[in-house]
Each structure stands twice: as C-alpha cells, then as structure tokens.
Amino acid sequence: MPHYLKIEALRMLRNKRFIIFVVAFPLAFYLLYANLYGDQTDQSTGTRAAVILMVSMGAYGALAASIMSTAVPWAQERHSGWLRQLQITPLPNWMIIAVKLLSALVLVLPALLLVVLAAVLTQHVSLSAGQWAALIPAMWVGTIPFAALGLAIGSLTRPDTAQPIAMIGMFGLALLGGLWFPVDMLPSAMQTIARALPSYDYASIGWEIVAGRTPPGSSVAALAGWAVALGGLAVFAYRRATVRA
C-alpha cells in the first residue's frame, strides 16, 4: 500500500496540467495579490491582507489539488482499462479508493505549503506556534470533502465529461466560497448560496484561526457533515462503478 501511494502521488506530480493549476496558479496569485494589497488590514479583526490571502490561496491550491488529482485521473483509469488491469491482481477493491483518497491528501500538501512558505518568506507572515499548529492540519484534513467529491465525479462520469465538471466544480467552489474575493462583495442572494458551500466553511476555519479566534463550531460541524455526505456519495459511486456484471 505505501508503494501504491507513492506511485499515485508520483504520477500526478509529473502531470503538467496538475502542476500548473494546483501548484503554480495559487503561488503566482498569492505573490501578485500580496504585492498589491498585502499591507492593507481588515477593519474588523486588524489582520493583514497578506495573512488572509495566504489562507485564501492556500485553500484554493488545496481544493484544486484534491479535485484535480481525483476526478479526471480516476475517470480515465476506469475508462482506459487500467482499473480492470488492477482488478485482476490481488489488490483488494477497497484499497484502490483508499489509496486514491490518501494520495489526494498527500498532493494537497505541496500546494498548501508552498503558499505558506511564500507568505512567510516574501510577506514575513508570522503566526503563533499554536496558530500554525491549528491552521496547517485544519486546512489539510479539511480537503477530505473535496477529494470525496472528485472521486464521486470520477466514478459517475466518463473522462470527457469529468473534465468540465471537475473544472466547474473547482472554480465554482473557489469563487463562490470567497477564495478569490470576499463573499460580502456578492449580491445578497448569492451570499446565501456561498455561505452554504463547503469551500466557504473550509476557508472560514482558516481565516478565523489567523485572526486569532477559535473557528465557530458551526463551520467545523458543517464541513464534517459535508465530509460524511460526500464521502458516502463517493463510496456509493465507487461501488456502482466497480460492480462486476
């Protein structure tokens, strides 16, 4: 299983599209935005924009990594016959989806940590040890609902439909969840939708931590609820996609 995990992670890191969308994009936008607005401060909390942007772009990178490493590759594997090749080896069925989920989590790390590193090095962002210790694990484990969503998409669609659906899902969650601009800037009807999305809860947990506050239980509970719901959907879809008829 560790070897399978390594192989899965390795292949995504060799994929140009993945590196561009997931690692280069958030890093480049962080550097750009932090340069333009980094020194402004948030009136309500007094947090520097460079810190808030670190959370936003880190969240975008992590979200993108978890969806991009799952939906399309998995749809392709099912379609191209690679899944069947695996099914005729002693590899148990459940391990395939378990490794997919774990490798998505592993692949979240470079996207997330590079943005954090850029924030520390270029914007001299500094947080207390307790804040770091809460922020990084929360933003890491918080991607589980998105990885589950990606796996569900990969199980339910063909590669050519998985591609646009994954893209729409990824950018939709990022934009509406307030990762690219504050949710407050949206019309009020859209705000209601935006606040109901898992990406909003996910990023909010990070924003609250860097503002020095304890994230509200409602956000944590909502994100956990999404993880359970989307995880259930992913398992159901996986079973359906791998059933032998």
Binding site: Y4, L10, E77, W82, R84, P90
Partner: peptide
C-alpha cells in the same frame, strides 16, 4: 486483456515493479 492502456506518466520499470509487488 484485449484492451488496456498503461498509466501515461509512469515509466516501464515503475509500472512493472508496482504490479509485481501486488503479488505474494
């Protein structure tokens, strides 16, 4: 199998080694 493709990003050695390690 009659039809089947390989994982494009992996090398021949990586693919073959990966599959052989799945067997006892």
């Amino acid at each position: 199998l009659q039809e089947g493709t390989l994982i494009p990003e992996l090398t021949v050695r990586e693919l073959v080694d990966f599959v052989r390690r799945l067997y006892p």
